[in-house]
Design a protein around this nucleic acid. Sequence first.
DNA 1: CGGGATCCTACGAGATACTG
DNA 2: CAGTATCTCGTAGGATCCCG
Lengths: 127, 127
Amino acid sequence: MNHSAKTKQPDISLAICGYSRVLEIISDKWTALIIYALENGGVRYGEIERRIEGISKKMLTQTLRKLEWNGLVQRHITPTVPPMVEYSLTSLGGSLLQPMRELRQWGRDNYWHVEEARANYEAMSEK
Amino acid sequence: MNHSAKTKQPDISLAICGYSRVLEIISDKWTALIIYALENGGVRYGEIERRIEGISKKMLTQTLRKLEWNGLVQRHITPTVPPMVEYSLTSLGGSLLQPMRELRQWGRDNYWHVEEARANYEAMSEK
DNA sequence: CGGGATCCTACGAGATACTG
DNA sequence: CAGTATCTCGTAGGATCCCG
């Protein structure tokens, strides 16, 4: 009753692949860094901005909104003047930390292999 | 001797973060799907194309080249006419499978939470 | 303090056509 | 079969200025 039993392999569909769906959520340039900034608890807007080198207000706000929209981050406003806004991970957001840490670790352990491969590839192309 | 001992937290730097480096490698639209297509061994160009729904020759070739450049995939040509080209994961590429599978699993398990959060967020905005 | 509104541009990626 | 070569377009993301 399911997909093509006679052909060698099932299709790989972008629309259905769990990985693609995760990427849609966490592959924006600043998303992961913001999640890491929040991994130890709630942090104020300005403090996140200070912690992450090079991020602009626009990108910070935009990325936080998307994280909120996806249910990974929650926003808590204390209506003083001026206002104080604190962001924190939801439990859904927290559940992403473990798998993300593993990818990060892979990057730390293996990035030099990647750089080596690139140098090698380019050396080959020139000959 | 290291970074600012008196300020509350060390900076989070895009350039240095292991996670950002991994994203640089595997966040392209088709990259993960190609890696999955190769997870059980070498596959020919045309076969990858058939397995991945919706990919164009241009994107397939371009993504394969980048994967090769990064040392994750290797290319083996049998110079018959017409030529036969087989791609397979290197050991470096294979080492990415485990962490990627975990993210994929997260997507499968939690995507419905994300969709729920989105619906909720939008319902809030309208009021 | 914590944003929002605009403008601009580089680049990812699709469509289409051609080739050894 | 396994690619290249162009053309085009949408959008992510940076810069800048303004606001309650």
